[in-house]
């Protein structure tokens, strides 16, 4: 067991993978976080505290793939939770929904609800198509009622122009 270890010592930065407890003193939450987040790794983390709010603050601020409050190692035994790290600890997840889905190719699928087989014509481009589409966008996405109404009005005007142009051409 090593006591009075300081963050600058190599033993606090390099993974030991051995039976050595390195104990370092921290003045409080702020320093604890600074030291905890101060390596290139970020796999798991454990916080021993009886305060729920403090626990929550650590959960939000610790840069790691998992944070366990008041028990070491238990997150791994909850197989619903993902396991993995950030930074030098790697990327990707095992366990849980994330680990399961990582073994799959998520495939996006779009199918017909009804047996309607009319093409959505986007070509050839005709006069006023630009204005028409702009009207659609404004009507769909305009923020607020007035914006939408303006879009709707533009749409209506453009449609009328297109119709009369078609009638004239006949």
């Amino acid at each position: 067991m090593l006591v009075d270890v300081t963050p600058d010592m190599p033993i606090m930065q390099e993974e030991l993978f051995g039976p050595v407890m390195c104990i370092a003193r921290v003045s409080g939450e702020a320093q604890a976080l600074e030291v905890a987040n101060g390596t290139r790794f970020g796999l798991g983390s454990t916080v021993m505290t009886t305060s729920f709010s403090r626990a929550r603050r650590f959960v939000e601020a610790l840069r790691a793939g998992s944070t366990s409050i008041n028990d070491f190692g238990l997150p791994y035994m909850n197989m619903a939770l993902p396991f993995g790290g950030v930074g030098g600890s790697g990327f990707g997840r095992l366990n849980g929904r994330e680990g399961l889905r990582a073994c799959t190719v998520p495939k996006a699928v779009l199918e017909d609800r009804l047996p309607l087989h009319m093409p959505s014509k986007v070509f050839p481009v005709a006069p006023l198509d630009y204005e028409l589409f702009r009207g659609v966008l404004r009507a769909l996405y305009g923020r607020g009622a007035s914006s939408k109404l303006k879009g709707g009005a533009e749409l209506a005007v453009t449609l009328r122009s297109k119709l009369s142009a078609r009638l004239r051409s006949r």
Binding site: M12, M48, T49, T50, N70, G88, G92
Partner: peptide, 24 residues
């Protein structure tokens, strides 16, 4: 998917239940 090493911290706060912290 890379599961590499770690240098996991175990933080013992001043309001920790000390026997629990020692054991952990």
């Amino acid at each position: 998917i890379l599961e590499l090493g770690g240098k996991d911290p175990l933080i013992v706060c001043d309001d920790a239940a000390l026997p629990q912290a020692v054991h952990a």
